[in-house]
Design a protein around this nucleic acid. Structure first.
Lengths: 248, 248
DNA sequence: ACCTGAACACCGTTCAAGT
DNA sequence: ACCTGAACACCGTTCAAGT
């Protein structure tokens, strides 16, 4: 391992945050402190409670002071997203364990999303291009290629994996903070069971199953579906058959 | 077919919209007119441009007038979501074609989402329980059961199908209106290709594939993965083998 | 039963002015 | 180079008062 200076990464083609020579004063205000405070505000107030004014308050300034550092509220949200991506670490690709590694990437992503309130909502329409996002994508691609995916399938697989995790977490996330899932699940169940069976035969018949919502298990089923399907397509691509479907 | 009065559906356990005896005056203001105007505003202003004041304007009143009918902005968004769900029609379940039918449900959902700007963002955290949403869910469940899914797998399958379509459309939707995908894709490609290969070997190597973003095709791959995987699990459940994987 | 004007308590952002 | 106060143009929502 030769230690050499990390090459400077030029700014991505779009960038809402002003590139400023940072004066490295550690006193009250700099980009890092702002992002840290913002994430704290976000985590316990949600996106609706997330306000430039509140962030400024937490830092002991007025809202106007933030704008020199982060450009706009949207710019700050970009930075938050980048930071949160950086919290996740992706394992070094191991060809023999690529399926489990891919699932772990997804599990970590889900855990991070559940940990940072409303981060899925924030991610919508944001195409992160910061160093953390790049590093993350690169390492996920490494795993897919280690699994034997073609270039095209690797890029596609990365995209779809992120998509399905976002989709899954979207609706386990939104419903408020974490007020007990138990009562609302039974409430929904009872309501469905009370509907006219002539009009909603399936909802009435399956009402009980709507009360059971072990999200961890549901998520694992999704991952199984996805990774198995991916393994199958990889096998198709190179003309052989997959040797270990459903090994878990 | 006996024609009988449709049974009255009681309100769901949570309901942000006030149940009022509607006076059926067709003049200026009623719930339906408000929702219609709101959807129009939403479609061409996006969620950021969506304002109670703007909706009121379109109807020739002040914002305060809306509150009697829809309770709150969130209540109005609930109604919008319900309405949009109602725009989609789900085919009558046909056991022999359940796989293609399920894909069609997903395709219709995606088309609807692409047609109504920011509707995915609106759907987050909303558990629709209106008549349209109920009818929709019931019919999707019918298809899954026609395919042989167990009760548990039917409920799970419906949930996951909706999840993955939401996830997929999340990021093809956000990036602004529809400013040409071409230039930004090549911009991203060029940027990725210019990165230091020592740090991002995979991004650099696969940069070209990031420019190719045939979303229709990507979506079809996702549907194949999902429906194949589901068929496989259904077969597992009843101890036999699936007879038609990858028939498309 | 329905609608309204006016007000309240908030927003994001700008900008001239300070240091 | 960095920070600030004050202001601008907006918000969602309420509420007394009207018809």
């Amino acid at each position: 391992m030769v230690k050499r200076p990390r090459p400077e990464i030029p700014p991505p083609p779009w960038d809402r945050v002003p590139r400023r020579a940072l004066a490295d004063r550690r006193d009250p205000l700099n980009r890092k402190a702002i992002v840290a405070a913002a994430i704290r505000i976000l985590d316990d107030g949600g996106l609706d409670g997330f306000t430039m004014r509140r962030v400024a308050d937490a830092l002991g300034t007025g809202p106007a002071s933030l704008y020199w550092h982060v450009g706009s509220k949207d710019g700050l949200l970009d930075l938050i997203f980048e930071e949160v991506i950086g919290e996740q670490q992706v394992p070094d690709a191991d060809p023999g364990r690529w399926q489990e590694q891919l699932k772990d990437v997804a599990r970590t992503m889900r855990a991070t999303i559940l940990h940072h309130r409303d981060i899925v909502r924030i991610s919508i329409g944001r195409v992160p291009m910061g160093p953390n996002a790049l590093r993350y994508s690169d390492r996920v691609l490494a795993i897919l290629r280690a699994g034997g995916a073609s270039d095209r399938l690797a890029v596609l697989g990365r995209h779809l994996l992120i998509s399905i995790v976002n989709g899954f977490t979207m609706d386990e996330t939104g419903m408020d903070g974490q007020p007990p899932p138990e009562p609302i699940a039974t409430m929904a169940r009872d309501y469905l069971a009370s509907l006219p069976p002539s009009e909603f035969p399936n909802l009435v018949a399956l009402a009980d199953h709507f009360a059971i919502s072990d999200q961890d298990l549901r998520f694992e089923v999704l991952l199984d579906l996805f990774v198995d399907g991916l393994a199958f397509r990889i096998a198709l691509e190179c003309g052989s058959f997959p040797d270990q479907l459903h090994d878990a």
